[in-house]
């Protein structure tokens, strides 16, 4: 794709068409506001003091900007009886998300490669069954998974959560890589076979380097899913091993004392920040990767 100036769009002239265009952009503007307003209110509220929140209105800008709420959310807010803020739980989430994303992405890549480039009898059936996993609701697997983790001795630990997310993510990662590799010419793999490379040789030296867009998409997807997960976190971890999403819930839903809206908002933004950051850094690849494989050629 080359970056050329957009070619002129041919359209009718006249008052009616002008009005329609104005209306169109007005509607788009309203949608934009609708999406951005919550973020604005969260940011504004997190920078206000509690007094200002009580006396001012919801949408007003902070009169005096203070980062106290952010500092408290990060380091000293009470999660249950422990008052260390979100910091330790962020660390839990990182310890969980990095291996879970890495393992599920790596396995998905091998699966997708084997399913498309080393076609064996029943490959389509196996893929269909794996895809089925993507449609199983979280709630259905809760009890069997809890039992499995218990048997494996991983109940209530971050390692257990890593296993759950890896298994649950495989359906998605396999789907992404399979679709990407469908668009890769079989000739390349055949050429590599004649050149003398084997299953893993072709994978690591030829196929995987080509799959960078698919890797980026899968990593972003898995990172977002796993980081944002609440249900598995709350079901399979206890207290100190909670991921940050569960800790956030515990901060916000505390029933004692004054409701500190500014701290709640700051904590919510802190929790959401890593996924936002990943989108900003790799979003370009994300769109490109989603489109890859959609069109052959």
């Amino acid at each position: 794709m080359t970056q050329t100036a957009p070619a002129g769009i041919v359209r009718r002239k006249g008052l009616r068409h002008r009005l329609m265009r104005i209306l169109l952009f007005a509607v788009l503007g309203v949608f934009c506001l609708y999406y951005l307003l919550p973020l604005f209110i969260m940011m504004a509220t997190s920078l206000k003091s509690l007094d200002e929140i009580r006396t001012g209105t919801l949408v007003s800008l902070p009169r005096q900007i203070t980062f106290d709420a952010w500092l408290k959310a990060w380091g000293s807010a009470c999660v249950g009886v422990r008052c260390d803020g979100l910091k330790p739980y962020i660390w839990n989430s990182v310890l969980m998300v990095v291996p879970a994303v890495a393992i599920s992405t790596a396995l998905g890549a091998v699966n997708g490669y084997a399913l498309t480039k080393w076609r064996f009898p029943g490959a389509n059936t196996i893929f269909a069954l794996m895809l089925f996993g993507a449609f199983i609701p979280f709630q259905v697997v809760l009890l069997p998974m809890a039992r499995t983790l218990g048997v494996l001795g991983l109940a209530g630990s971050v390692s257990g959560l890593i296993l759950v997310h890896t298994v649950y993510g495989l359906a998605f990662t396999t789907l992404f890589f399979r679709n990407f590799f469908m668009g890769v010419s079989d000739g390349i793999v055949q050429a590599a076979k004649i050149d003398g490379a084997g299953f893993f040789g072709i994978f690591s030296q030829i196929v995987l380097p080509m799959a960078l867009p698919a890797i980026v998409v899968t990593v972003i997807w898995q990172f977002t899913q796993i980081w944002n997960d609440f249900l598995f976190g709350v079901a399979f971890t206890v207290g100190d091993s909670n991921p940050v999403t569960v800790a956030l819930n515990n901060v916000v839903n505390t029933s004692t004392g004054v409701k500190e809206y500014n701290v709640d908002m700051a904590a919510a933004i802190i929790t959401a920040l890593p996924t936002l950051l990943v989108y900003v850094l790799a979003g370009k690849y994300f769109v490109r990767g989603l489109a890859a494989g959609a069109v052959k050629g």
Partner: peptide
Amino acid sequence: IPPKDRDIAMVFQSYALYPTK
């Protein structure tokens, strides 16, 4: 005998060059 041990080389219609190399 697998392709790599047949002492053959092949040129493909799509060229099948390794794009990252």
